[in-house]
Design a protein around this nucleic acid. Sequence first.
DNA 1: ACTATTCCGTTAGTATACTAATAGATTCAA
DNA 2: TTGAATCTATTAGTATACTAACGGAATAGT
Lengths: 142, 142
Amino acid sequence: MDIKEKSAYELESQVGHLLRLANQRHTTLFNEVVSMDLTPTQFAALIKLGELGKCSQNELGRRTAMDVATIKGVIERLRKKGLVEVNPDLNDRRRTIISICKDKTDIVPQLRKDGKEVSKVTLSPISASEQKTLLRLLKKLT
Amino acid sequence: MDIKEKSAYELESQVGHLLRLANQRHTTLFNEVVSMDLTPTQFAALIKLGELGKCSQNELGRRTAMDVATIKGVIERLRKKGLVEVNPDLNDRRRTIISICKDKTDIVPQLRKDGKEVSKVTLSPISASEQKTLLRLLKKLT
DNA sequence: ACTATTCCGTTAGTATACTAATAGATTCAA
DNA sequence: TTGAATCTATTAGTATACTAACGGAATAGT
């Protein structure tokens, strides 16, 4: 080993790679835990809609950190599943108002319960105090 | 506020959401820092190839945490860019051997340098000791 | 030697996730 | 009030990322 060698570059220790792996694992656990046939982003859109009641498509995207093109696809798939409604905003003809279908609003409490379980399982390899630390540090990276 | 209310479910505090946001930010920074026209996964494949010299396509996928279908697409795009070579393994006709083109192996040191810079910038919002903690905790989640 | 299993790669299909270009609607400012 | 700038949504294109199904090749166990 050359003593002048710069510290090696290990893919496995880079923050980007670790974030990607952690994300992969989370998605896997999400699919195992969540009862309904939903993806993590579809879930996020529903949770946020459950909080706001209704919301323009673009604003919902901003609130869930999705691109305008991404949120459009997510909403379209939720619409096809009969979970959300898409209506024009009569006060601003640029806007499309998204809301959870009235007969489906009762799914939100179960989604929140599932969401808590997903987070719990995802974080289970580390202690409670480590969990707090991780969430705090991840928030600072945003 | 109902005193019996369960703790609220905040999307913004869930580990999955935070991981997704951290990943988005990392990708943005990656694109700003890395000089060549590469995506994070293409970068990872090249770094790993630089380490191994040559590797079967599936093994490269496993070493970089990519699905067989995903690594195929990544290699195909690197091949189109003239960065990697794809050859049959004469000792095992199931395998395809991937290697960096001989006249392109000199890009690896620069990629490592860029990779270090990406990690540094990504982690810059937190202190050095927090960075160590974050990496340690992320590894435990894998 | 043969069979079951495992391994390798490909393909098709679906779902994020981004950029860039476009176009209509609204708002702001001169 | 008109013109510029901004906002909203759509579309096309590219790149991960996964599942499932398939077929060919190698290997393990009998």
